[in-house]
Design a protein around this nucleic acid. Structure first.
Length: 292
DNA sequence: AATCGACCCTGCTCGC
DNA sequence: TGCGAGCAGGGTCGAT
């Protein structure tokens, strides 16, 4: 479900509600959600009980709580396709069907981890240096900085130059979290539409300038989506307070197969790239697959 | 080294 | 109304 804007919206809510609080109890069966911890729920309970939460951080679609005085200094939260983190002051006594873990904080706030598909995970991880001067959880070290971390000049240019050397579809590269993180299927398509490029265009065939424009457009869409509280197609995405996001109304192509392009009136087309749907307008977006 | 497909799950929608 | 097929916003792994 959630891409960078949705995760960032949730992170802000959690940071506000949880920072400076202490975890007093840990409940739930955990299940697949805690699969990455060798000691499962027992380890999670031992490590988190009485831990203080300093802040909630994020890179790409990974977010983590910074914990006080613990061997594993972070609790990493990845929402996968259908994960939610909700805060509550008076939750139902019984855990919901898909509620796998519940934390109770020193002030009575309850944090509920919900995930029907269980592609998400909760993982204790130590902080390490990412090679660029930032401390990140060890299990998130493999992902690149996200578009909101990259600086306008050098960082974006360097990434555009790197993409320019690759003989690979631009959409696949946008989704490659090792190249740039945080972009998922919705915002990749929206960024490509705004940049006027079809997703199967190949890196080497696009100019560094075109690639830079694509990155800027994609970042701009995500920035606007954060301001709108993210995109909600359905009840699967809500922020930490249970509110939906309002960016769906701003989507130009994603999920609009056979509908009219809002710019030229032509049909929005869906094709498959790398096993994922790519929504685009064949008039407003060019395909560039050969050297120019 | 890079890239593709399979796989991990549940739930919803669509067509017959 | 019932049922199977297909699809979904994510990531990881092994085979090529």
């Amino acid at each position: 479900m959630p891409e960078l804007p949705e995760v960032e919206t949730i992170r802000r809510g959690l940071d506000k509600h949880l920072s400076g609080k202490r975890i007093v109890s840990v409940e739930g069966r955990g299940g697949r959600l805690v699969r990455n911890n060798p000691g499962g729920m027992v380890q999670l309970r031992d490590s988190l009980t009485n831990a203080g939460i300093k802040s909630v951080e994020r890179r790409g679609k990974f977010m983590w709580m910074l914990l006080d005085g613990r061997a594993e200094s972070t609790l990493v939260i990845h929402l996968g396709m259908s994960g939610q983190v909700r805060t509550a002051t008076h939750p139902p006594a019984q855990l919901d069907r898909h509620e796998h873990v519940r934390l109770t904080l020193s002030d009575g706030t309850v944090v509920r981890f919900v995930d029907p598909r269980m592609f998400g995970h909760l993982t204790l991880s130590e902080l390490v240096e990412d090679g660029r001067g930032r401390q990140v959880p060890e299990i998130a070290r493999h992902i690149a900085p996200d578009l909101l971390e990259l600086r306008d000049g050098d960082d974006l240019l360097e990434l555009a130059q790197r993409m320019h050397t690759r003989n690979r579809s631009i959409k696949t590269m946008l989704l490659d979290q090792g190249l740039v993180s945080g972009v998922g299927n919705i915002y990749a398509d929206e960024g490509l539409f705004r940049a006027g490029i079809q997703g199967r265009s190949v890196g080497v065939s696009l100019s560094v300038k075109q690639l830079g424009s694509l990155l800027e457009n994609t970042r701009e869409v995500m920035t606007q989506a954060v301001a709108a509280g993210g995109t909600s197609f359905d009840t699967l995405y809500v922020d930490a307070d249970g509110n939906p996001g309002y960016f769906e109304r701003e989507l130009k192509v994603y999920g609009r197969e056979n509908e009219e392009c809002l710019v030229c009136g032509g049909p929005i087309v869906r094709e498959t790239i790398g096993g994922r749907s790519h929504f685009h307008c064949t008039t407003c977006q060019r395909v560039v697959v050969s050297q120019t």
